[in-house]
Write a protein that binds this DNA or RNA. Structure first.
Length: 777
DNA sequence: GCCTTGAAGTTACCG
DNA sequence: ACCGGTAACTTCAAGGCG
């Protein structure tokens, strides 16, 4: 469930926190497994002599236990390495520096893999899974709530689909900060709320005296002894604040199972020993439908809180609600609701996190914070060890970009009865088919006979046909595992926890499989190899272009195509068509869906279609973009609906005009006009005066907080100057200030016309307005 | 100095 | 810190005109 490491008396230890089959919390400590790294010698060096001189560099604090000559592969090439085993992982980088100075040493490898990750990889242990081992009880002499063991055998995987009964606790804090600065040296924690499936608690400060509340919370957590702690933005807010506050008050904060305090860990994550701390904010990144990731939006989307009787209190209002004794009750209710939302969301998203942990091999409390690239990499490292492949060091420079997927310009307008076919997992399957892998790639300077290699079209990269590459093995393994899970799901009842878990697991496997392609073209990847990515996409383009040709030969019209999908006129012979394409191209293509009616503009990657079940599928249009205000998105969605379902142009135009009138009359809320955009870098790094940047600066000036990566919501108000000059954070503007004409011209009409101009509708058909005369104002 | 035009910068989407 | 392809917005600077 959680993994850690420590060095005691110079001995490296791996700590595995878990739950046994009697529901007892256990800590398994392995102090036998020793840290190591690989040294690549220069060619022609006397390995024995080099091994000896490396061994001579041994230092007392971290003795070298052995230097062994081993055969390993680096990018598929078999080479001699020296495996240096030593006792204390704290000295890894010291050894690397010393070894690199040593003559006869070309490079060091795998020195940056954390000890516990190497342990998991070497021992094939996946987090959040069941294992069986013979153990020896360890007497710690301490009064702890868990049993401590030392493994006597390796951990053997157990085929078990169920999860233990995890104790999950949500928490949330409220701060009294009249200045809004949220300074732990000054501002007290007024409310700490917790929620478990069976109990809700609140620890409340006595005015500004919060010591008791914090101590109460600490005692509660220690007594309840949660396995999983969840918060919302807790990595950046709740925990840092609590840590700062307890330091200031000089109270201990031993929240960890081993009595340690929460501490910053990898990927900017706060770690609590023995417990998995999860920040819902990280998990919500997987829910792409939610554009602005607030707790409220996430909870609403997942349907975890009833919308009635909800108390809404703005952050800025908290001090008022706290000071005013009559309002305090409402603040407490608000805080209780927040923590209940967190708990509810956690319940829905925990299966995703657990399955990602199982598949990537990363500990549960890291996996959702780590980027996709690192998850893939971690999975690859695990596999590399099994096939004797050394983990390469990160490339120091990239080779620039390469060409990706092919996109066919759509036939614009309305089409009836269109079938969409797509190649399932096209890139992974191409990697299997042509054995595309970092270890099968043949560099241009290497000569090899023609029939031993697959040659990528257009780009000419060569990959050995055999032996099976490292990627091929992994991808085949993942596909097989996914099939197995899907088969096992047939026997399970939907809605059961097991079914949900299996479903999440197969989805995670699919996600990871598809991410391998992106990974190998990523500059930060240890296995970065441009020809692998470039070759894969080149074969992909060949396949889709061939498919388009075959489609035409089949007498079907191709309306649109993007990367691995084609949109064609529907036929009663869809199955024949799939079979023929599959057979001719050697890659499986499947009918994915049928649109009764579909609409394209001239733009690629944008379409709206009516499915056979009556559902409207909108892709790429402003409707699905979070950086368009709700009012424009709603108008466009309605227009598309009317056009596709009823084909009634007049009605569509009328709807747009009604919305314009509603806006003119002030019958809309400011919320519908807010434009949300991400601040992607520090404000002073922007080269142009963009509206969202100007709005962000105004927010900061007014004392607001905004971090890189978060979204700013702004509206355009009336007045002089450019749009940027008139962009203000929505919290600072009321409806009377809003530039109604901007919203009509640039948002509503623009979004509506994107669709309606294909039916001859002109801008002038929308309620006459003083157009483009900002200058006269 | 004003206006038009196209490039640059920026974001968020698709697969 | 997965990839490239794409649309669309606003700003900004260059070029043309008088």
């Amino acid at each position: 469930m959680d993994v850690g490491q420590t060095v005691e008396n110079g001995v490296s230890k791996v700590l595995m926190w878990g739950i046994d089959n009697n529901n007892v919390r256990v800590l398994v400590v392995d102090d036998i497994f020793q840290p190591y790294l690989y040294v690549l010698p220069d060619g022609g060096v006397d390995l024995g002599a080099l091994a000896k001189s490396l061994g001579d560099l041994s230092i007392k604090e971290a003795p070298i236990l052995g230097v062994e000559v081993v055969k390993r592969k680096l990018f598929g090439k078999s080479l001699d390495f020296l495996k240096v085993v030593f006792r204390n992982f704290d000295y890894t980088s010291k050894y690397v520096r010393a070894f690199k100075k040593c003559s006869g040493v070309k490079d060091c490898f795998e020195a940056d893999i954390r000890h516990y990750m190497r342990y998991l990889a070497d021992k094939r242990i996946r987090p959040c899974s069941w294992y069986c081992a013979e153990v020896q009880k360890v007497d710690t002499g301490k009064n702890v709530k868990y049993a401590v063991y030392r493994p006597l055998t390796d951990l053997n995987p157990v085929e078990r689909l169920d999860l233990p009964n995890l104790r999950v606790m949500a928490f949330d804090i409220e701060i009294y900060s009249p200045s809004g600065a949220l300074n732990p040296d000054k501002d007290p924690v007024i409310i700490i709320s917790t929620a478990t499936p069976s109990e809700k608690k609140q620890f409340v400060a006595e005015d500004s005296e919060d010591r008791g509340a914090i101590e109460g919370f600490l005692k509660y957590v220690t007594d309840f002894d949660p396995d999983v702690i969840v918060g919302f933005d807790s990595n950046f807010f709740d925990f840092p604040f609590l840590i700062g506050r307890t330091k200031r008050l000089r109270v201990g904060f031993p929240l960890g199972r081993d009595g340690s305090e929460p501490h910053p860990s990898v990927y900017g994550h706060i770690s609590v020993a023995g417990r998995a701390h999860l920040d819902l904010y990280d998990m919500s990144e997987t829910v792409v439908e939610i554009k602005v990731k607030t707790l409220k939006n996430i909870a609403d989307y997942l349907g975890v809180m009833s919308k009635d009787s909800r108390v809404v209190i703005d952050y800025a209002q908290i001090p008022k609600y706290w000071t005013d004794r009559n309002l305090r009750e409402q603040l407490l209710r608000y805080a209780a609701q927040e923590v209940e939302s967190i708990r509810g969301v956690a319940e829905k998203l925990l299966p995703t996190a657990i399955s990602m942990s199982q598949v990537s091999g990363m500990p549960l409390d890291q996996v959702m914070r780590a980027g996709v690239g690192f998850r893939v990499e971690n999975m690859l490292i695990t596999e590399a060890h099994q096939v004797g492949e050394i983990v390469p060091n990160k490339a120091e420079y990239g080779e620039g970009t390469y060409t990706g997927g092919y996109v066919l310009k759509p036939v614009s307008g309305i089409h009836d009865n269109i079938a969409v076919f797509d190649f399932a997992s096209m890139y992974p399957n191409l990697m299997i088919k042509y054995n595309i892998s970092p270890d099968t790639y043949v560099p241009p300077d290497e000569s090899v006979s023609k029939d031993e290699v697959n040659v990528a079209p257009e780009v000419g990269h060569r990959f050995r046909k055999s032996p099976p590459g490292f990627y091929k093995k992994i991808i085949e393994g993942l596909i097989e595992e996914r099939r197995k899970i899907q088969r096992s799901m047939e026997k399970l009842k939907p809605q059961t926890l097991q079914y949900i878990m299996m479903n999440e697991r197969q989805k995670s496997i699919k996600t990871m499989t598809n991410a391998v392609y992106g990974y190998c073209g990523w500059l930060g990847a240890k296995w970065y190899l441009k020809p692998v990515a470039e070759g894969t996409s080149a074969w992909g383009r060949e396949v889709i272009k061939e498919t388009i040709k075959l489609t035409k030969q089949y007498g079907l019209e191709v309306i649109y195509a993007d990367t691995d999908s084609v949109f064609v006129t529907n036929t009663d012979r869809v199955d024949d068509f799939s079979r023929e394409v599959t057979q001719r191209l050697g890659l499986e293509i499947k009918p994915e869906k049928v649109y009764k009616r579909i609409f394209f503009t001239e733009a690629k990657k944008k379409y709206a279609g009516l499915l056979e079940n009556g559902e409207l599928d909108i892709v790429g249009f402003e409707v699905v973009r979070g950086d368009w205000p709700e009012i424009a998105r709603t108008v466009q969605e309605e227009v598309l609906g009317i056009i596709l379902r009823e084909g009634d142009l007049g009605k569509a135009v009328e709807f747009v005009n009604e919305t314009i009138n509603r806006l003119r009359e002030g019958a809309v809320s400011v919320e519908e006009l807010v434009i949300w955009e991400t601040i992607t870098k520090p404000l002073d790094k922007y080269k142009v005066k963009a509206p969202h940047v100007v709005a962000a600066k105004k927010l900061i000036e007014a004392g607001g907080r905004l971090e890189v990566g978060s979204k700013i919501g702004y509206v355009i108000i009336k007045g002089e100057g450019s749009i940027s000059d008139r962009a203000v954070p929505y919290s600072l503007a009321d409806f009377s200030k809003v530039d109604v004409n901007y919203y009509i011209d640039r948002q509503i009409v623009s979004a509506a016309l994107r669709v309606l101009e294909y039916f001859g509708v002109k801008e002038s058909q929308f309620t006459a307005k003083p157009s483009r005369q900002l200058k006269l104002h």
